[in-house]
Nucleic acid binder design. Sequence first.
DNA 1: CAGGATCCATTGCGATACTG
DNA 2: CAGTATCGCAATGGATCCTG
Lengths: 132, 132
Amino acid sequence: MAPSAAVQRRARARTTHLTAMAGCPTHRVLDRMGDRWVSLILKELAAGPRRHGELARSVAGATQKMLTQTLRVLQRDGLVARTATDSVPPSVHYRLTPLGESLLPVLATVTRWAERHIDDIDAARAAYDRTP
Amino acid sequence: MAPSAAVQRRARARTTHLTAMAGCPTHRVLDRMGDRWVSLILKELAAGPRRHGELARSVAGATQKMLTQTLRVLQRDGLVARTATDSVPPSVHYRLTPLGESLLPVLATVTRWAERHIDDIDAARAAYDRTP
DNA sequence: CAGGATCCATTGCGATACTG
DNA sequence: CAGTATCGCAATGGATCCTG
C-alpha cells in the first residue's frame, strides 16, 4: 500500500529537523565531546604537548586506530595541532590550540557537575532498577 | 603464532583502562549528553513539562522509538520524571527533576561556547580540507 | 615511531506493525 | 495516546597486518 499522507508528512518533518540539527552548534559540540576518547585526550593534552606514543600509553584504553582517528578529527576541528619532524625515526607532537584550550573550562564545568552528582545518578538507577 | 608478551601486556592495559573509564563520572555524563536526542529533549523540557505527543512534535527528528528509549534512559538516570494517569486515553507527562534542572546550566555553558566558537571550527575544517 | 589499510563483530537506529 | 516488538541495514569501533 502507498504510505499515508500523515506518514509522509511526518517523514518530511523528520528530515527537516535532522538537517536543522546537523547545523546546531550545541549539538555538534556535544557530539564531539561525547566521542569516546575526546575527553581523555583533551584532558591529557591539557597538561602539555604529548608525543603520539605518550598519548598511546596514557590513553591506553584506545586502540591505535581510534587514537589516530580521534586526533585527526580534533585536528580538523582546530582543537589540536600536530607538529611532525620528518626525520628517522619520525617524531610527532600534539598540543592544544588556543581554541582547544578555550574548551577546557567547559570540560571542567562538566567534570564538576559530574563528580558532584554521579552518586545521585547511581542512586536513581538503583531505585529505577529495583522497581519493575 | 602465539601472541607476543608485549601484545598481551598492551591488551591487559587496555582492559584495565576501559573498566576505569566506564566508572569515570565525566565520561559517563558526556556520554549521556552526547546521545543524539538528549540535549534536544532537555532543552524542550527546560521550558516546562511536556506530554509524550508534544515532545514527539517538537523533537520531530527523532523516531517514536528513539524518543521513548531516550526518555527511559533519562528517567533511569533520575534526570527526568514521568507521570502517567492510567485513564483512557492515557496521558503521560515528562518533566525535569531537580537533578535534571541542575544540569541545565552546564548545558548552557556548552551552548555558549559552541555558539561563540562554531565559526572557528568551521574555518579550521575548511582550512584542513583545503590542504591535503 | 607514527599511522595507513583491512577484515570483522557489534550495535545504534530507522521502518513498520501491533496492543491497552 | 503512549508504548512495545521485530526486522534489517549501515555505521562504529576493535584486532591485526603492513609501510616510510
